[in-house]
Nucleic acid binder design. Structure first.
Lengths: 230, 230
DNA sequence: GGATCATTAATTGTATACAGTGCATTTTTG
DNA sequence: CAAAAATGCACTGTATACAATTAATGATCC
């Protein structure tokens, strides 16, 4: 096929507004769009090879998601990464993910249990080989399986939105390689309590697990702010 | 002033997309737009005396909020009210509101405490006079003060979105007048634990409080579905 | 009479056009 | 030279136009 590339591109942007949404979101999360940067509709439209209409639709979704905010006069800008933000996002994530753990404990299938087993095994591998990138990806998978196992679609989409924020902090997380083994330890404990069918215990463990991450990131941002990294 | 009416209208729709958003949302929550009803852009635009562009922006926000959903081929329709929906929404609300109670316990101001006292006093009044509408409004106020007291903006907006759903069930709630005194009782207990500075206890009470509502509504919907009310 | 397909109408998706607003820079005025 | 006014530019908010899809209608055939 000559136009396989075009096909792929066409598939991705079946709906231009979603293409724009994903593109801008990726740019914010990936740090290409720095906090405070204003979104110029026509510029985005040009970048995405489209017109302003889909851009405007994407902007509404991004605002509802909290990645951008309405400027006082007009237009939108990328939200800054502040310590309060992290406190809010991870506080919420801790509670919601705890709830997901609680629900998952009674609703998880054998297949999902097996998946978690396998992910943890791979995490152990990564720890040995100091493969941090792969570890982060596995960590994501672990949490995704947990979210799905809760069988609550709304919870799932909320948690995914919150987790996307994490990628904004990934620079920080990468600096904390030494603590990765703690994460695996947490995962193991969580899985054990799920298997033991103790929902309250799972909820508690998940909250602790996310809460730990919160404190690390907050601390790092506080240092960073002093050092004017942000 | 001759044009005070126009001024007011102009103020409300400073941004047409928000006017449309509020209008459609109100229609869905109020039951004017029945579940399953398809949203026709041009029709909405005509109703709101505007064009399709702001309508499309509003639609994106409504979808992200979960009040409408994308139809398989194209377009959007109002989400149905199902038992699973209620389970999801109120399950989430129970957890998030519990967290709000937890946070509020340490962050609440004296002014907010006083407001809660006053609301409960008024609720007692309504109970005596069997003033149900007023009671529901007061219940809303109580929860709103609690949300605000938590000082977490993201939590606040999530809870407000979830609470808006409640209005879709208000028909059901109105049929449960006998149980209203239980709600006041719950409010009193919650406030007591807040004053006693026991965050975990508050969280537990709030979860129980919302959980009770969940079961009542679910039960009623199950009956209603059999009776083809929905 | 019912299934199939062509034709037409609705509706969405996308692009563009235009008016209004705010902002910066320049120009005018005292 | 400073303050005010005017000009031009960039951008948003809104409306409209056009193309592509989807849904509806009706004609045709067996």
């Amino acid at each position: 096929m000559v136009n396989s590339e075009q096909d792929q591109a066409a598939k991705k942007r079946r709906l231009l507004r979603e293409h724009v949404y994903n593109g801008v979101k990726g740019a914010i999360i990936g740090g290409d769009f720095q906090p405070g940067r204003r979104l110029i509709e026509e510029k985005l439209a040009a970048d995405m090879a489209t017109s302003r209409t889909p851009v405007r639709e994407a902007i509404q979704k991004l605002e509802k998601e909290g990645l951008i905010y309405k400027l006082p006069k007009s237009g939108f800008a990328v939200k800054p990464v502040t310590e309060e933000e992290v406190e809010e996002i991870l506080g919420l994530r801790s509670v919601l993910e705890g709830y997901a753990g609680f629900l998952a404990t009674s609703r998880i299938t054998d297949i999902e249990l097996k998946q978690l087993d396998e992910i943890i095994a791979k995490e152990d591998e990564c720890l040995k080989n100091l493969n941090v990138d792969e570890f982060i990806s596995l960590d994501g998978e672990f949490h995704d399986v947990l979210y799905k196992a809760a069988k609550n679609s709304r919870l799932y989409s909320l948690l995914n939105d919150l987790r996307d924020y994490m990628y904004r902090y990934r620079v920080i997380i990468l600096h904390y390689q030494r603590k990765l083994h703690l994460a695996v330890q947490d995962h193991k404990e969580m899985l054990e309590s799920i298997k033991a069918k103790c929902p309250r215990q799972v909820e508690k463990l998940v909250r602790k697990h996310v809460g730990r991450g919160k404190e690390i990131i907050k601390k790092k941002i506080k240092q960073g702010q002093q050092a004017r990294v942000w």
